[in-house]
Design a binder for these strands. Structure first.
Length: 675
DNA sequence: ACGGATCTCACT
DNA sequence: TAGTGAGAT
């Protein structure tokens, strides 16, 4: 079996997403040169998204709206909403959720950013290929699909000038190269899989547009890097298949910086160190040479990558792992008094509180850590200083006062002065380290009466097999909201916590203070646990992928399969079917095609219910680590055991870690009262 | 005085 | 761990 062709991976990227959101909101903006800008007073505001019509005039991101107007006098400028005195991206996040919900009907997805998602289509494709006729791979089902590298240049005939004509010719040419029998392992099987993957993506993109009104582009290939690259080749509103066979020609002239993760310093250093410009030129070097220059992991990653091979798994995760907000204060507006600092911390905290509460309702989780960052003038880095503390409650005034306490020591003016110096040019608050919460989200969804209304739950309804996307009854929305409202009412019982728990060591605290008390965070979470168990009765099988285990194959040789720049895992990972390795030596397990987890046979129905509910509620995964999981059923064990194999296990379990860190905590409260 | 506001992940 | 740095959008 050829290497590097085991998976079918797609990347879907919304076209100028913020612009589309504004255009849907205000249809007069459709089909016009249009940008989204934030703020207005300084040069008309900074542009953060540009429609394709505007791009034709040379308008780009990071341009001032006033400057863009000079290039394109007809330019329509939509403004980012402002609340709490800062840009508020809420509506784009919400639109993103809509999109992700639709995409999740087709595959397990990894949210890569607000407007991008990866998906591993391997198992869906294999299933479809099983009883597939040649005739079922039809150009009519690939109407928006380009095949990179096709049509092949010919001396005899001229290429069509019309782009669509050329696309079609390339597609036809490629389809003719496909074999007529689809046996795994047969020559051309990998390409058949790509074709079927592209068909699925066509359907998915059509569904996204139908259900949300948003258009997107996509790349379909065998790994994330190639899928991402392919996606950019025919934008907007089109998709591109990148077969491995087309890689060498493409890479021959592709600048290194075009590859994901090589757009920065590493890319430059490759060019400088090896004197190469294009990614394909790296094939001239041995693995050992590359490892010598860039380290074992990165070197090895590059060696494979320049041949079109890469193994980073698509991680089943729809939710952000952190929720944060920040604001810059440039130049004269830099914060130079204590009052100003407190005021803006409060504004940021207010936004954060709102977003965290919403997150708790929707996703049934609570953040446990709050990080505060600041920047001072002259600093190159965007955040010149950051400290964190335990987040016990979602309460803006407390978040802001704790935040103030923890950055107080940066004020050279001293704590008695009203002045703050050096002034702050940026404030940043970010919440992370999520745990499942006992109320809200999934659990209360299921404890509510609507949940047991089985009539509208069709657990076994799978991703649409073909043609039109099955429109869910609109009642689902209502169902959703009803559940959400219930949650709201219940919400408060969850976090009745007590003291704040600082996670920083005492020397990090401002002006020698603070008593060190071991805190009850552990107790808090165990409370949540038991109450959760009391109400959650519907499932025996826990949603294992709440644990965020990457879809990885428990390979033998995992030790050398490590990581390289930006989380590119070199693990020989397979998705879907390849996960079906017997790691329990027990035939009672089945691999769920939605989440890749091992599920006990007799618990499959519940597991499917679970997926259905998750899709409904868009609360797929929570970012909690396995340590904090509420669940302890077999699937859970499977998850952790297979993960164990993929990592050199050394330290004590995360459980122990967390406990330890919380033990060393301090209360900011006591400190604050004095100060 | 402007690439703003958010993200994720690796390293130590 | 917590904190920093890099990379991306």
């Amino acid at each position: 079996m050829e290497v590097g062709k085991e998976r079918v991976v797609a990347l879907v990227d919304m076209d100028c997403f913020y612009v589309q959101v504004e255009q849907r909101f205000n249809p007069k903006l459709k089909n016009k040169p249009c940008v989204v800008a934030q703020y207005k007073t300084w040069k008309g505001g900074g542009i953060i998204a540009v429609s394709y019509e505007a791009r034709a005039h040379g308008v780009t991101r990071n341009m001032w709206a006033n400057d863009a107007k000079k290039l394109c006098p007809d330019l329509q400028v939509a403004r980012v909403r402002e609340s709490h005195g800062k840009a508020d991206l809420t509506c784009y996040r919400e639109a993103s959720v809509e999109v992700i919900e639709v995409m999740s009907r087709f595959a397990v997805i990894e949210r890569a950013s607000i407007d991008e998602a990866y998906m591993d289509l391997t198992s869906s494709v294999q299933k479809r290929v099983k009883d597939l006729q040649v005739s079922q791979i039809d150009q009519e089902l690939l109407k928006n699909t380009y095949i990179q590298g096709f049509p092949v240049a010919s001396e005899l005939e001229d290429l069509p000038v019309d782009k669509e004509e050329q696309r079609l010719k390339g597609l036809q040419q490629w389809l003719h190269t496909l074999p007529s029998c689809f046996q795994p392992g047969c020559s051309g099987y990998a390409e058949v899989c790509l074709a079927v993957g592209a068909m699925i993506v066509e359907e998915m993109r059509a569904a996204v547009e139908q259900d949300t009104g948003f258009r997107c582009s996509a790349g379909i290939s065998h790994n994330k890097v190639l899928a991402k690259l392919a996606c950019g080749l025919n934008k907007p509103n089109r998709q591109t298949v990148l077969p491995l066979g087309s890689v060498s020609e493409l890479f021959m002239t592709l600048p290194i910086s075009k590859i994901r993760n090589l757009g920065g310093k590493l890319g430059v250093s490759i060019t400088e160190t090896l004197g190469v410009e294009n990614i394909g030129e790296l094939t001239r070097f041995t693995r050992a040479q590359l490892e010598e220059s860039f380290g074992e992991k990165t070197g090895s990653w590059l060696y494979d990558l320049c041949r079109g091979i890469e193994f980073e798994p698509v991680k089943p995760r729809q939710l952000p792992k952190s929720i944060g907000c920040s604001k810059n204060f440039q130049g004269k507006s830099a914060l130079a008094t204590k009052t100003q600092v407190q005021h803006w911390l409060q504004q940021l905290a207010l936004e954060l509180e709102e977003r965290l509460n919403k997150d708790k309702e929707m996703n049934g989780r609570v953040a446990k850590l709050l990080t505060v960052g600041v920047r001072q003038p002259g600093d190159k880095k965007p955040i010149s200083f950051s400290r964190c503390f335990a987040l016990a409650r979602y309460e803006a005034s407390k978040i802001s006062s704790d935040s103030f306490a923890i950055i107080k020591s940066l004020n050279a003016a001293g704590s008695h002065q009203e002045a703050w110096s050096p002034p702050l040019t940026c404030l940043h608050l970010s919440a992370s380290k999520f745990n499942e919460s006992s109320s809200g989200g999934i659990s209360s969804f299921f404890s509510s009466d609507v949940a047991s209304t089985q009539s509208c739950l069709k657990p076994n309804e799978e991703a649409p097999k073909s043609e039109t996307t099955p429109k869910k009854p609109s009642g689902i929305q209502a169902l959703f909201q009803k559940a959400a409202e219930k949650k709201k009412r219940k919400a408060d019982e969850s976090l009745t916590d007590k003291e704040p728990v600082a996670l920083c060591s005492s020397e990090n605290l401002p002006e020698g203070t603070a008593s060190v008390l071991p805190r009850q965070a552990a107790a808090v979470s165990s409370v949540s646990r038991s109450s959760f168990f009391q109400r959650k009765s519907l499932w025996k099988t826990p949603p294992s992928f709440l644990l965020e285990k990457p879809v990885e194959e428990p390979t033998e040789d995992k030790s050398q399969a490590e990581r390289s720049p930006q989380g590119s895992s070199h693990a020989l990972s397979g998705a879907g079917e390849q996960n079906r390795v017997e790691i329990h030596g027990n035939e009672d397990f089945h691999t769920c095609e939605r989440c890749g987890q091992e599920v006990l046979m007799w618990e499959i129905p519940e597991h499917n219910d679970f997926h259905y509910a998750l899709d409904l509620q868009n609360s797929l995964s929570s970012s909690s680590t396995s340590s904090s999981s509420l669940f302890s059923a077999p699937v859970m064990d499977t998850a952790s055991s297979s993960r164990e194999k993929s990592r050199p296990r050394t330290q004590a379990g995360p459980q122990a870690k967390r406990a330890r860190s919380l033990d060393n905590s301090i209360t900011l409260d006591s400190f604050f009262k004095k100060a």
